[in-house]
């Protein structure tokens, strides 16, 4: 039974949100706030025409591409820095200065550098994910207990064994936490980046329908972007359960 608790409470929260939305739409009665019913109809229409899928896939592709290059790179560099004083003295100051920087503000710079295409968007999202994961990886590699490292070293473990048997698994739960945090930010930055120089993506769909005064469509697109974020979150959860089974047994 416990297994169903999380989806169930999420569903209830969603229902409450819908109720509030319907209430607000009923009270305000303005075209810019259509109720959930009208928006859902627009959602279905967009789905049927295939437009929604096309835009959603374009957005998903950007997120996954940035995740694919930034996350492993950041994890590897962060774990290395956390275990090596030399690497740390290079990476730490950089992370300290760049991590708090609002990456979204770099959008124009990155577009000037990398052109108007997808690569600029992917790089921008990648920066968001990169620094979050970098900092988490460094922290958890630093915190590793000496006794744990020594006990594995005493069994004859070389550097490679140490990395894959000790350092990486120790950091996994924390890396997943960082992933969830950065996915939230990444979806926001994705929206921003898709309002420029592109004709696809959910961000484009939102801004485009806004300009066309197609309000129900705009809300349908906002919903779709929320679902995308939710889906990414759920993906991270499932991946964590599969890759960190010990953390689940600890909770029970």
């Amino acid at each position: 039974m416990k297994k169903y608790k999380k989806p169930l409470s999420a569903l209830m929260a969603f229902a409450l949100l819908l109720l509030l939305w319907a209430l607000a739409a009923f009270v305000i009665k303005k075209p810019f706030l259509p109720g959930p019913w009208l928006s859902a109809k627009a959602f279905l229409a967009l789905l049927k025409s295939g437009a929604l899928l096309k835009h959603a896939l374009a957005s998903l592709k950007r997120v996954l591409a940035s995740l694919g290059f930034a996350f492993p790179l950041a994890a590897a560099l962060g774990l290395w820095a956390g275990r090596s004083v030399k690497v740390d003295s290079l990476v730490s100051p950089l992370a300290y200065v760049l991590h708090p920087l609002p990456k979204a503000a770099l959008l124009p710079v990155i577009m000037l550098l990398f052109g108007l295409g997808d690569s600029a968007k992917i790089i921008l999202l990648g920066l968001v994910i990169f620094f979050q994961a970098l900092v988490s990886a460094m922290d958890s590699a630093r915190r590793l207990s000496r006794e744990l490292v020594d006990s594995v070293r005493s069994l004859g473990a070389g550097k490679r064994d140490m990395a894959f048997i000790v350092i990486l698994p120790a950091a996994l739960p924390e890396l997943f936490t960082s992933l969830r945090v950065s996915l939230g930010t990444a979806v926001a930055v994705l929206f921003l980046s898709e309002t420029f120089a592109t004709e696809n993506g959910l961000g484009f769909l939102i801004v485009d329908s806004w300009a066309r005064i197609a309000y129900p469509e705009m809300y349908a697109a906002i919903l779709a972007l929320s679902f995308l974020g939710l889906g990414l979150f759920a993906m991270a959860d499932v991946a964590e359960k599969l890759l960190c089974p010990w953390a689940a047994q600890r909770r029970n």
Binding site: E147, L148, D150, S154
Partner: peptide
């Protein structure tokens, strides 16, 4: 290779 050490807090890996 033939020396084994058992540490005070056992040094077990929580993920194994």
């Amino acid at each position: 290779p033939k020396t084994a050490v058992i540490f005070q807090h056992y040094g077990l890996l929580p993920w194994r």
